[in-house]
Design a protein around this nucleic acid. Structure first.
Lengths: 224, 224
DNA sequence: GCTAGTCTACTTGTATACAAGTATGCCACA
DNA sequence: TGTGGCATACTTGTATACAAGTAGACTAGC
């Protein structure tokens, strides 16, 4: 399992949640792995209580499955859950960008503008990692602009199902296209052009259609 | 605070969550109330740990606000959160009924049919409480039919913001109209008529537009 | 009367102890 | 050889103990 530093002021619970999420998405914690509360809490240098609280959070979204007196297991990749996550993302992203088109304010627009400009900067530099980071921030910033922060938070746990398949996918989406998509979405929001914004979101998300059959063939043990 | 029996086999955590949710929605736990972990755990006859785990769950959706070393407080009614919940419900219900129109299977259709028939039965009997119960089950059954169960679970906590205002609303929605709406939605699903289904869902939800200004005047202390 | 400071009684956050259930390996015995 | 049963070493669920911080009442001193 990958380790992270515990930030100053960060609670043991938030720390545990951060580490678990990152390791599940990156597949350093493989689907099916037993997450022993004793073992992991020792590894993170915290007690069972806050770790347990983080585990419960993830089991709400079926990212971890808890069997009493048996153990907590990282959920196998379940096509039904991946589909639910994909559905949720499409539905929410569509509705939220519409809302953003209606209610965007200058301050939030600046944040989005800065973000996309940075993406374009790192695109020239060829820094894929930074773009990945900015991608996530861009996405979240649209929710904030539409005043839908809590919805974003609640959906983010669900997205782990989706992001895990993304990690396994060999064919990575080209940064060039992603950044272009983002630029287009931003311009649509600026012009309050809902119709175009929705079209662009769906086009953007359609880039993340993986060859699940093939992935399953390569990693059969990871699937349900 | 209202009490409930702890069901056989129900974990202390699930029990605590059930009791807290019910009391927050019914406003027996008033907005702004301190939820002392010691006091409430004693009242429920459980220890702090499982109660705490339930509280954390509710604070994820901002239904409870936790201030470290100060206390857990039932969140004041925040129009922004009510709006987020209303938005989420409209967006999800719309998308989910569309999905149900596409993928409904006979078994799930039977469940819906039985449910609406019962609603019609209790409508004649004038049993509003039963209709309320069946209403919630109908709603959930559509998500199940569309294979979106986890999404339903995750959104249900968010709905507390919405349901709390519903509780305060004096003008209750007429059972007659509700049951009619449900019958219409079911028939639309049967016919795979997405367009009509979406129209009916939005008409149905539009019945739940409360006079928030008036409610706020009557219960100023409950609002943020 | 007013203010500074302290004491006290709370609060949550975390750590640990105990209870109860499960799976597995091993051994005795048929 | 095969099988029943028990010991053991795990697991999570719950209860309790301790740490650290907050707020408010009360008192001493001015």
């Amino acid at each position: 399992m990958k380790h992270f530093d515990r930030l100053a002021g960060e609670s043991a619970r938030d720390y545990a949640l951060k580490v678990l999420k990152a390791n599940i998405v990156s597949l350093d914690l493989k689907p099916g792995t037993l997450i022993s509360e004793n073992e992991i809490s020792a590894e993170l240098g915290i007690s069972r209580t806050p770790l347990r609280e983080a585990i419960i959070d993830l089991s709400k979204a079926s990212v971890i499955e808890t069997y009493p007196q048996k153990g907590n297991f990282v959920a196998l990749i379940d096509p039904k859950m991946v589909e639910e996550a994909r559905f949720l993302r499409r539905v929410l992203d569509t509705a939220v960008i519409e809302a953003a088109c209606e209610s965007i304010n200058p301050a939030d627009l600046d944040i989005l503008e800065d973000n996309v400009s940075l993406q374009e900067f790192y695109l020239e530099k060829g820094n894929a990692e930074k773009i990945y980071e900015l991608d996530n921030m861009f996405h979240k910033a649209i929710y904030t602009a539409a005043q839908k922060d809590i919805i974003y938070d609640m959906s983010s746990t669900m997205m782990i199902h989706f992001d895990r398949v993304r990690t396994l996918s060999v064919e990575t989406v080209k940064d060039l296209k992603i950044v272009n998509d983002h630029r287009g979405m931003l311009e649509a929001i600026k012009k309050h052009d809902k119709e175009n914004a929705v079209l662009l979101v769906n086009k953007h998300l359609s880039r993340y259609r993986f060859d699940e059959d093939n992935i399953r063939k390569n990693f059969p043990d990871f699937f349900k």
